[in-house]
C-alpha cells in the first residue's frame, strides 16, 4: 500500500515507514511468503501433533481476521466473538449429523445462521455506546454458551461428537490430517485476503470513518448503523467459517470451547498485532496461538502474561505492534515536488 511514500513528507510525530524491518513488513510479497511457509511447513514436520497445532493456529488466524473487521476496522469492541464460531460449529455439526452430510454441504445453512446471529446480536446493540456494546456482547457470548450447554439439540454439556468429515470423493478422504491442513490453509488464506481487500474498499473506508468520528461520518451521508451492522455481519461470517473448520478438525463440538477466555484470546491477537492492519493481526494470531506451545513450561503464567501484555501494549503502543499506517502514494512527481516545497516552507 505504501511502498513508495516519500518519507520527507511525513510529519514528525508519526513514524514514517523506514528501516529494513518495517519495509520488509510493508512489502507486497509478505502475504505470498507467509502462504509459502504455511504450505511448506508439513514437509518439515508432519507429525499428527504438529499438524494439529498448525491447523488450530490457522483457524485462529481466521477468527482474528474476522474480529479485526469488527474491532480493528469499525472500532466496535466485541467481547463475545467466539459466539459466532459456536453458532457456525454447532450448526454445521448438527446439520451434518442429522442428514449424514459431509460438512462442506452444511456451509449454506451455516452462512444463513451466522448472518442471522450477527443481525440478532447486532441489531439491538449497535445503537448503544461503545462501552455498553462491549459488555452486551460479553453477555451474548455467555448466553450462547449457556444455551448450548442446556439444550438437547446441542448435546448439552458433552456437546456433539462423531461429526462427519468435510468431504469424501471415492477413496480420497479430505479428513486426513495433512489434507485437512491444506484445506484449512486455503480457506483461511482466502478469507484473510478478502478481509484485507474489504478494508481497502469503499465499505472499509466507511468502517474507518465510523471508528474515527461517527458524527462526521453521518454528516457525509454514511448510514452509520447500517455500516456497523455490516461489519458485524461480516465478522459473524468469518467466525462461522472458523466454526465449520473447527467442527471438521475435531469432529466434535462442546460448550467448553466457547468460553470467554477464547473471545479474549482472539481479541488479544487483534490488539497486539495492530488493530486494523491485517498483516499485523495475522502475526498476532500466530504468536498468541503458537507461543504457548513453545513455552510449555510456563503454561501457568501464560494467561497472566497475556493480560499484562495487553495493558502494557495499550499504555505504550496503543496501536499494537504493527499498526495500520495511514500512508498512501502521493499523486504525480510534479505535484509532489510542489508539495514538498510547501511543506518545507511551513517548517
Amino acid at each position: 500500500m505504501s511502498e513508495n511514500v516519500d518519507t520527507t513528507l511525513a510529519p514528525k510525530k508519526i513514524r514514517p515507514p523506514s528501516g529494513r524491518v518495517s519495509r520488509l513488513f510493508e512489502s507486497k510479497w509478505l502475504g505470498w511468503v507467509a502462504l509459502a511457509i504455511a504450505v511448506a511447513a508439513p514437509f518439515v514436520n508432519a507429525t499428527p501433533y504438529a499438524l494439529n497445532i498448525m491447523t488450530t493456529a490457522a483457524i485462529f488466524v481466521l477468527l482474528a481476521s474476522g474480529l479485526n473487521i469488527v474491532v480493528g476496522y469499525c472500532g466496535l469492541l466485541d467481547l463475545g466473538y467466539i459466539a459466532f464460531m459456536a453458532v457456525g460449529a454447532y450448526t454445521s455439526g448438527i446439520v451434518a449429523k442429522a442428514f449424514d452430510l459431509p460438512l462442506l454441504f452444511t456451509i449454506p445453512v451455516v452462512l444463513v445462521m451466522t448472518v442471522l446471529a450477527g443481525l440478532i446480536i447486532g441489531a439491538p446493540t449497535l445503537r448503544l455506546r461503545s462501552d455498553y456494546l462491549a459488555i452486551v456482547t460479553l453477555g451474548f457470548g455467555e448466553i450462547t454458551r449457556i444455551t448450548a450447554n442446556n439444550l438437547a439439540i446441542t448435546g448439552g454439556p458433552s456437546g456433539i461428537f462423531g461429526i462427519p468429515g468435510i468431504l469424501k470423493i471415492g477413496d480420497f478422504d479430505f479428513q486426513q490430517p495433512a489434507v485437512f491442513y491444506y484445506v484449512t490453509i486455503l480457506v483461511v488464506a482466502g478469507f484473510v485476503l478478502a478481509a484485507a481487500r474489504l478494508g481497502k474498499s469503499r465499505l472499509g473506508r466507511a468502517w474507518r470513518f465510523v471508528r474515527e468520528d461517527e458524527d462526521a461520518a453521518e454528516a457525509m451521508g454514511i448510514h452509520t448503523y447500517k455500516v456497523k451492522l455490516l461489519a458485524y455481519t461480516f465478522g459473524a461470517i468469518w467466525g462461522g467459517f472458523g466454526g465449520v473448520l473447527f467442527a471438521g478438525h475435531l469432529s466434535a463440538v462442546a460448550p467448553t470451547s466457547f468460553v470467554f477466555l477464547q473471545s479474549a484470546l482472539v481479541l488479544m491477537a487483534v490488539v497486539l498485532g495492530g488493530m486494523g492492519n491485517m498483516r499485523g493481526v495475522v502475526i498476532g494470531a500466530l504468536v498468541i496461538s503458537l507461543l504457548p506451545e513453545l513455552l510449555r513450561d510456563l503454561a501457568e503464567y501464560r494467561y497472566l502474561a497475556f493480560g499484562v501484555l495487553l495493558i502494557v501494549v495499550m499504555l505504550f503502543r496503543p496501536q499494537g505492534f504493527w499498526p495500520a499506517r495511514g500512508y498512501e502514494p502521493e499523486r504525480k512527481p510534479a505535484e509532489e515536488r510542489e508539495a514538498v516545497a510547501v511543506a518545507g516552507e511551513q517548517r
Partner: peptide, 30 residues
C-alpha cells in the same frame, strides 16, 4: 471533525461515499 488517523485523500473520499460504484463483492474479488 476530520478523521485524524486517516490520510488527507481518505478524508476527502469520505465525502464521496454516496457515489457508490462498487459493492463488497467487487472489493473482495477486485
Amino acid at each position: 471533525r476530520l478523521f485524524p488517523d486517516l490520510t488527507v485523500l481518505d478524508n476527502v473520499r469520505a465525502g464521496m461515499h454516496l457515489y457508490g460504484g462498487q459493492n463488497w463483492a467487487d472489493a473482495i474479488f477486485h
